[in-house]
Design a protein around this nucleic acid. Sequence first.
DNA 1: TGACTTTACGGTTATCGTAAAGATG
DNA 2: CATCTTTACGATAACCGTAAAGTCA
Lengths: 310, 310
Amino acid sequence: MDLRLLRCFVAVADAGSVTAAAQELYVSQPTLSRQLHRLEREIGLVLFRPLDGRLVITSAGRELLPRARTLLAGAAAVRAFAREIAAGAIGAVHVAAPTAILHDVLAPLIAAAPPNLPPLTVRPMDTEKLYDAVDGDADLAVGAHAPPAHLSARVLARLPVRAYVPANHGLAINGSVTLTELIDHDLLLPDRQHHIRQVLDVATAEAGLVYRTAGGFESAPVALANAAAGRGVAVASGDPAFGLVPLPIITAQGPMMEPLFAAWRVDHHAPSTLAGLAGELTAYLIDRHGPWVAPETRHSVPALRTRSLH
Amino acid sequence: MDLRLLRCFVAVADAGSVTAAAQELYVSQPTLSRQLHRLEREIGLVLFRPLDGRLVITSAGRELLPRARTLLAGAAAVRAFAREIAAGAIGAVHVAAPTAILHDVLAPLIAAAPPNLPPLTVRPMDTEKLYDAVDGDADLAVGAHAPPAHLSARVLARLPVRAYVPANHGLAINGSVTLTELIDHDLLLPDRQHHIRQVLDVATAEAGLVYRTAGGFESAPVALANAAAGRGVAVASGDPAFGLVPLPIITAQGPMMEPLFAAWRVDHHAPSTLAGLAGELTAYLIDRHGPWVAPETRHSVPALRTRSLH
DNA sequence: TGACTTTACGGTTATCGTAAAGATG
DNA sequence: CATCTTTACGATAACCGTAAAGTCA
C-alpha cells in the first residue's frame, strides 16, 4: 500500500484523465498510467475503465476514493506533526523526580495549572538514577543534587532548609533559629543520601559545629512525624505537616538553603519547551515561597509566612 | 512519508533493537538501520539514540510513535476495505431510474426499508441516457425499456398497464377493461418515448385495432390529471392519483403488462450485491402488487385490489 | 570478547522518461 | 486527425544483502 500510488489514484480521479493528472504531479503520463495499474494489481481492484478514449472511475474506485483521501490526509497530518516536533513542539513532558519533590513541587504545580504549562507526566525516581532518566523516557529530571555537567540544567530555586518543631516548642517563638541554637537539640534527619543531610553537614563543618542525631529516617515525612511526637527537631525542606512550625535556619552565610535543579539532555528536540517549563517552575516557587527563593538573588530572611505555605 | 519506513520505525521501537526488529521483518539488519536513518532524514527528527551499545527511542520518537501506529492502522484498514470490495462488498448502491420509477418503485422500497437492503442513492435519469448511466457513476439502472445486450440484466416484475378513470366513469364498474372497450374512448397517454406507448402500440397492432389520442403528455401524472378532469381515459402503469380508479387492460394475450428491468455492467465488482438488490426489488413489487407480477409466472387477472395499491 | 550499530561495496531490482504503437470519436 | 492510453526500451537511481569496520559494556 504505497501512499504514492494512492496519491496517483486520487489525482487521476480528481483530474479526470491520466494526462491531466500527470501534469499536476510532474511525472510523465506513461509513468502515471503504470502506477495506476500497479496499484490496481496490488489491491486487486479495477479502479478505472476506458470509455470513449477516456478513463472513468469504476464503482470499486468510487468506493475506495474517500478512504484513500482519508489515509492521505492522515499521512499529511503525521508529516505536519513531525514538522511541529522538529520545530520544538511537545505533546506531554515526562518529568522524573524524587518522591518528595514530586509531592511538594510538581503535583502542586500541576494542581495550580498555570496557563502555559504543557501536560506533565511525572514519575517518581530514586535519587541515584534520577539524572540517568533523561537518557531513557524522561524529558526532564528535577532534583536537589547538582546534575552532571553533560546535561543542560537550570537552578529552579533555592528552597529554605528549616527546622520543624511543635507549636509549643521553645524554638517556635522566634520564627527562626540559628545553626548554633539548633545543634543543642536532637536532630531528626533523613538518610545520608538525602541532599538535605549534605547541606547540613557542609554548614556545620564551616561553622565548626557538631550536631547530634539519632540516625537517619527513611524519608523527610517520617522525620517530621517523629518531631511531632516530641522526639526532637526535624530538619527538612518540604512542606510542614502534623501541625509543626517550620523555622528557617540562619547560618553565618545567611539562611540555609537547598537548591532545586532541572536538567535535560543537550540534544533534546524541544529545549525551549523544557526551559520554559523550568521558568514556570521557578515562577511557581517564587509565587509560593516568595521572591527570595529566586535562583539568582539573595535576600534577607523574610518574616515567617505560614499562610502561603499551605 | 513511506509507510514501509514508518513500519520499520514502529518495529524497532517495539523490538527494542534493530537486530531483533530485522528478524521480525525478514530483512537484514543493515537494511533496517539504513531505513531508519532514511526516515529520520526524511522527517527531520532523531528517533533513536545509541545508549550502552543499544538504541533507545528519543523524546521526538516517543511523540511520533503513536501517530505512526495510527497511520499504519489506517493503511491496514484501507487494505482490508479494498479486500472487502474485491470480495463483492459495497457501501452504497447508486441507482439511476426515470423519475416515474424512482417515485413509484424505488422511493417506496427505501421507505419500506427491508432488512437486507444496502443503502441506496437514487438519481433521476432520462430514459434515453438511462442504461448509459451504468458506464458512469451508477451501479444499477432500473427502467421499462429492454436494456442493451451487453449489460447484465434481470426482469424485476411485469407491472400491469391500466386504464385510469374517475370513480363515476362507466368503465369503472367492471373492475377491468378489454382493449376493445378501451379504444372507444379518447386515450390520454404519455409521450411517444415512454415505454407504455410502445406497449400499447404493439397490443393494438396485434389486435388490428386503432386508438384515438389527443397527443402525448409530458408525463404519466399529467395524463392522469387530465383523466381526472374528465378529458378521457388515461393509460399508464404507475400509482393511481386524483381519486382515479385503475382498471387492468385485458388483451387476447391476457392482461397488458409492462416489464421492469434492472441492468448493470457485466464487469461490476459486486454483481451478487446488485442481483440481490434486484431480488429485493422483485420481492417488494410482489408484496405490493401481488404474486402475479412476478417476472417468471403468468397468472390470470386478479380481482382489483384497491387497498394494497396505496 | 560479545552484542550491536554503522559503513563499504557489488549486484539486483524498480522506476523513470522518451518514443512508438494502439484505440477511439 | 486529434486526444488519450498503452506498450517497448534504454538508462538511471534506489535498494538489498554480505562483509568488514567501529563502538561500547
